[in-house]
Design a protein around this nucleic acid. Structure first.
Length: 402
RNA sequence: GGGCGGAUACCCAAGCGGCCAACGGGGCCAGACUGUAAAUCUGGUGGUUCUACCUUCGCAGGUUCGAAUCCUGCUCCGCCCA
């Protein structure tokens, strides 16, 4: 733990894929000091457990945290149990509904398991800001708020826009940045990291720490990752995401669908591939580069073997039109007394299509294969037996008709 | 409180008494092409026992042989005046 790399070398790792670094010089100095004193820096990431699923977009900031962890620093995951109930106004044009304690606790548990996909959970310091806010009391909160002006708060982009547009801003929302800043005081953070939309909040920590006579924390922000569509930010509601718990095959396949011109961004933010290697790959054939990207991502979450297996399987499935390593098994009954099970009903029964009508259309469009043969007649059916059923390029299943 | 305009399938948006399961665009799905893509082209995009039938056009009623289209009430949204 006391063996820290030279500050410059650490900084090189930490700077990768970073948008804001306030201030770079301060970070360098503090890394140097930490090295001399053999004291790890304290790095905070605040997480409001408001949505329970983590995708690669969330993972960007977690991975930056991991960089710090690997370099021997102390990572603090701060659960915003108090702030989650407020709802961070960041990027929202509306007041967010507040959560109950039970929801927060439940989300926290699922969240934590997924955070473990990126961070070494044994080495994090895990805290909750309810620890101090619950005990602060109303007057304490008032004293805390007294140090900041409304004008200062309204500097914040999202507040300013809403204010100018005549949209409501609740008083409690103005308190959110102050609370987040106070967390840094309580935890004596050296660095706080977050997405670019967090810059204002991170600055609040600096201010409050200075006021309390602490060294001001360094603020570091990571970019918002572009989703699979190549234009919108990755988000669950847009469906353009890759979850950190997804199966290797899906993870790989989705990575392969990332647009070419987003590969540099993805390599930088989502993988550990060294940047000179990335540049070399990008200079070569795009497909080779993308395979490397997809393999790297898959390997990160499932291990190198899974990454290699995914490459092989993908080649077979898409270049040669073959079948996957393993397919889901389904057993379907024939209707009473019938010789055959109609194909549309089969597809609906195994969940490949939402309805028999949809299945029918897919069949007519030539998108369905049974044992490798295109089945273009919606009236066709299959008798008892086991079949390899394929809908589109991706959906395969071994279906046994009973 | 008053006036006006709007609510149509995942989103935008036509339709304004029968030819409407409802134009068009986006998105999405499938096919061709390809590097897995992108771009391009083609088809599809309510349900079913599928050349027919059933349920849809904010909600509830009504007029009519027949309504997404007309009338009444309700709910929600936008704009304007107070």
């Amino acid at each position: 733990m006391t063996e820290f790399l030279p500050a410059e070398e650490q900084l090189r790792v930490l700077e990768r894929g970073v948008v804001d670094l306030v201030e770079r010089k301060e970070l360098l100095d503090r890394l140097e000091k930490s090295r001399q004193e053999g004291r790890p820096l304290r790095i905070k990431l605040g997480i409001d457990p408001s949505s329970p699923d983590i995708h690669l977009g969330h993972a960007v900031v977690l991975r930056k945290l991991r960089d710090f962890q690997v370099l021997g620093h102390q990572v603090i995951v701060l659960w915003g149990t108090a702030t989650a109930m407020l709802g961070d106004p960041t990027g929202k044009n509306k007041t967010r509904p507040t959560l109950t304690r039970e929801q927060v606790e439940a989300n926290k548990q699922t969240y934590k398991a997924q955070v473990g996909r990126v961070l070494d959970l044994d080495r994090i310091e895990e805290r909750e800001n309810g620890e101090w806010f619950d005990a602060m009391g109303f007057m304490g909160a008032v004293r805390l708020a007294a140090g900041t002006t409304v004008a200062r708060m309204l500097e914040r982009d999202s507040f300013e826009k809403r204010y100018r547009a005549g949209e409501p801003i609740s008083v409690h929302e103005l308190l959110y940045p102050i609370m987040q800043g106070w967390d840094s005081v309580e935890l004596r953070c050296d660095v706080e990291i977050g997405g670019t939309d967090q810059l204002f909040n991170l600055h609040m920590g600096r201010e409050l720490q200075r006021r309390e006579g602490q060294p001001a924390q360094i603020c570091l922000t990571t970019p918002i990752l572009t989703g699979l569509d190549g234009t919108e930010k990755m988000s669950k509601s847009l469906g353009n995401y890759i979850g950190v718990t997804e199966a290797p095959r899906d993870m790989f396949g989705k990575c392969m669908s990332v647009p070419d011109d987003r590969m540099r961004e993805w390599f930088t933010l989502v993988t550990d591939v060294p940047m000179d290697e990335v540049e070399a790959l990008l200079a070569g054939h795009p497909r080779t580069a993308k395979v490397a990207l997809a393999r790297a991502v898959t390997a990160l979450y499932h291990g190198a073997d899974a990454g290699d297996a995914a490459v092989a399987e993908f080649d077979r499935m898409f270049r040669e039109g073959g079948t996957p390593d393993e397919m889901p098994e389904h057993f379907v009954d024939r209707p009473d007394g019938a010789e055959q099970l109609l194909l549309p009903n089969l597809l609906a029964a195994i969940g490949f299509c939402a309805s028999t009508s949809e299945a029918r259309r897919l069949i007519q469009g030539g998108g369905v294969k049974v044992d490798g043969e295109v089945a273009a007649d919606p009236k066709s059916g299959v008798g008892a037996g086991t079949y390899h059923v394929q809908a589109g390029k991706r959906k395969h299943a071994r279906v046994t008709v009973l």
